[in-house]
């Protein structure tokens, strides 16, 4: 039933007035539900949030733990209740995934709402940083305007083919290109490249051989960095390669930079990461259980 309902309800053709009406109805219903939730007495909120969290978590727990039939044909019917639940879980899975996608999509909308609320208030109150708020909102509106305008243009297949040629770009496509490819993408790369300056400055100021541990760390880092420098690695490996005379078991084989790097990676780095991953995994599992079962302090408040 659960898996069939959305298909039947939302199966109107894209762009039809019936579907638009249903989307508006769904949106209003959602807003109404959210509004109703804000009016719920404080004592009941915890139960509602706990119930929602528990049911959401329960679905995935059952999906992974409930026994599933090895094979299932399109016309198969469940033989007993256990198989019935298994079929239901399998059929409902895509609905739950799509539901999660929609909620995540709404989170983008929530972010936009939050930005608008904060920055419009700043502009209205004449905050000392109101200029930056204005720039942020102006950039957001401009990007949305040009990108959506270009998208609408490209929905026409003939126009879309025409726009493959930059000589035929109009103001909307040019605007989108300038804002997205010309500004946003370049600023994105520029911001990330700043890390190089911080890393170099930090390495110079902080990477000192003040203790045995720091010396080991520094020596290991040096070996790995040198092994990544093709020219250095080639010369060092070539030198030791000449000494071992193609015998992979020769003692000097161990001094090749690539051998050392592989040793560090395979025997020191990977086991350490495995240990950390196991620890964080157990922590996440414990935290997940606490949230799911409503044991986390303050959950639901």
């Amino acid at each position: 039933m659960f898996n069939l309902l959305p298909i039947a309800f939302w199966s109107d053709p894209a762009g039809s007035s019936a579907l638009t009406g249903k989307i508006v109805f769904g949106l209003l219903l959602g807003v109404g539900l959210l509004f109703a939730l804000t009016k719920v007495p404080t004592q009941m909120r915890r139960s509602i949030v706990f119930g929602g969290t528990f049911l959401s978590g329960l679905f995935y727990v059952l999906f992974y733990l409930w026994p599933q039939p090895i094979t299932r044909g399109p016309n198969d019917v469940p033989r007993d209740a256990v198989e019935g639940v298994a079929f239901w879980l399998k059929d409902s899975f895509s609905v739950v995934v799509n539901f999660t996608q929609i909620i995540s999509g709404f989170m983008l909308g929530l972010g936009v709402y939050s930005l608008l609320r904060i920055h419009l208030t700043r502009i209205a109150k004449g905050h000392k940083d109101a200029f930056f708020s204005f720039v942020l909102l102006g950039s957001m509106v401009a990007m949305a305007f040009f990108a959506y305008g270009d998208y609408i243009l490209r929905l026409d297949p003939v126009k879309a083919q025409e726009l493959e040629n930059p000589d035929k770009w109009g103001p909307l496509t040019r605007g989108r290109d300038l804002l997205f490819d010309g500004l946003l993408q370049q600023m994105d790369a520029a911001m990330f490249s700043i890390i190089a300056f911080f890393i170099l400055s930090a390495a110079y100021r902080a990477f000192r051989v003040r203790s045995v541990e720091a010396t080991i760390l520094l020596a290991t880092a040096l070996l790995v960095i040198l092994s990544l420098m093709g020219l250095v690695a080639d010369r060092v490996d070539g030198f030791f390669g000449g000494l071992v005379a193609n015998d992979p078991n020769d003692f000097f084989e161990n001094f090749k930079l690539t051998t050392l790097r592989n040793f560090i990676g395979d025997n020191l780095q990977t086991p350490s990461i495995n240990g950390i991953t196991l620890g964080t995994g157990i922590g996440a599992l414990a935290m997940g259980l606490r949230i799911w079962l409503g044991l986390e302090k303050g959950s639901g408040n």
Binding site: I199, L200, Y204, F207, L218, L222, I225, L226, L228, M229
Partner: peptide, 19 residues
């Protein structure tokens, strides 16, 4: 990348020699 890594090694050595 080579030059950046070489620079990093040199800077770390300079800092440690100074120390």
């Amino acid at each position: 990348l080579h030059f950046a890594m070489a620079l990093m090694i040199i800077m770390v050595i300079l800092g440690n020699v100074g120390m």
